[in-house]
């Protein structure tokens, strides 16, 4: 079988001077090879499709029993009476992710600028290694460190925030002597460290795309280094940086084990982020599935489906922003 590679010959040339169309025979081996590689690529599509489809099928009984609207707005978990709702957990999942972004984004962007613009060349290599290593450390270890090492100093900070910054509604406490451990705040701090590597590495890539000539131009005009960053690098990389932050948000939403270890699971939405008691969809699945029976299993799958859809949407938006910013700027 001969395949003609589509080539548009320059139309203004006389026929005899037009380049000859290249014909190459695709051998049997090539066809097998292409089919194999295509099959592998299709497997990836298949895995994602299967995830969505099977989770939906298994989620339907629980959604029917509890009612779709109630399932996503109520905050109860009584499988025996078909009363199931993850509304509060959804809120708390997003709250943990927002706290993580509030702490993680400045750190990650600072780190990205440090590696790209400030660090001496030797340090640069070590730092990139450190960021990669931070990404490779298991979530379980983060959780143990968060629970055993971070709890005490951070609850001190939480106490200070509650005493001095309680003009802000989310720093208020319901009772003055409320426990300040195992909270959204502390879980968010742990997750902040965990999402730093992804934000740093993606935004570093984007910032490195800024034409060096423009940076040097800014410096040559007498701008300081911060002036160069503020007026050239950040505006140029803005959409890519936004994308990297969204990617971090997606990771933070799905983080499981570190969050389970740190928080005390509650089902109600808890807007007092400094106080004991928080929750996340993944924490619910990890801590309840061991003794789940019957409809409760379906309910956990439905919760997982909600998480899957949420992270998928965030990730797809983030990726398309990042990809576009890498192409055009």
């Amino acid at each position: 079988m001969a395949v003609t590679t589509p080539q548009t010959p320059a139309p203004d040339l006389p026929v005899e001077e037009r380049p000859r169309a290249i014909r190459s025979a695709r051998t049997f081996g090539d066809r097998v090879f292409r089919a194999l590689a295509g099959g592998a690529a299709a497997t990836c599509l298949l895995i994602m499709a299967a995830t969505g489809i099977f989770l939906t099928i298994k989620a339907i009984p629980a959604l029917q029993a509890a009612g779709v609207w109630d399932f996503f707005t109520e905050s109860v978990w009584q499988p025996a009476e078909d009363k199931l709702g993850v509304g509060g957990l959804l809120v708390n999942t997003v709250l943990i992710a927002l706290v993580a972004l509030a702490m993680g984004v400045p750190l990650a962007l600072g780190l990205a600028l440090f590696i790209n613009e400030y660090a001496p060349a030797r340090l640069k290599r070590w730092l990139t290694g450190a960021v990669d290593l931070l990404a490779a450390i298991p979530s379980l270890i983060f959780g143990m460190w968060g629970y055993f090492a971070l709890q005490e100093p951070l609850s001190g900070v939480a106490r200070w925030l509650a005493d001095h910054l309680n003009a802000l509604p989310f720093f208020r406490l319901t009772t003055p002597d409320a426990a300040l451990t195992r909270s959204t705040f502390i879980a968010g701090a742990v997750v902040a460290i965990m999402i730093t590597p992804i934000i740093t590495s993606v935004s570093r890539d984007v910032m490195a795309q800024v034409p060096r000539v423009q940076c040097e131009g800014a410096l040559g005009l007498g701008g300081s280094r911060w002036g160069m960053i503020r007026d050239v690098i950040l505006p140029f990389g803005r959409s890519g940086i936004v994308g990297s932050i969204l990617l971090g948000f997606g990771r933070a939403l799905g983080e499981t084990i570190a969050v389970v270890l740190v928080i005390a699971l509650v089902f109600e939405p808890n807007f007092n982020i400094l106080e004991l008691g928080s929750g996340s969809i993944s924490a619910l699945i990890a801590s309840k599935f061991g003794e789940a029976q019957g409809i409760e299993i379906n309910a956990l799958i439905a919760a997982g489906l909600a998480l899957f859809i949420m992270t998928l949407v965030v990730n797809l938006i983030a990726r398309s922003i990042v990809n576009r910013s890498k192409l055009g700027g």
Partner: peptide, 26 residues
């Protein structure tokens, strides 16, 4: 495919477990 692979890399680890649980274990 590249898009889906990117989406897969953001798949929460618990969901990866949950789908195998749903299709196979359970």
């Amino acid at each position: 495919v590249r898009f889906i692979v990117d989406a897969m890399s953001g798949l929460p680890s618990i969901v990866a477990g949950l789908v195998v649980f749903t299709i196979w274990v359970n």
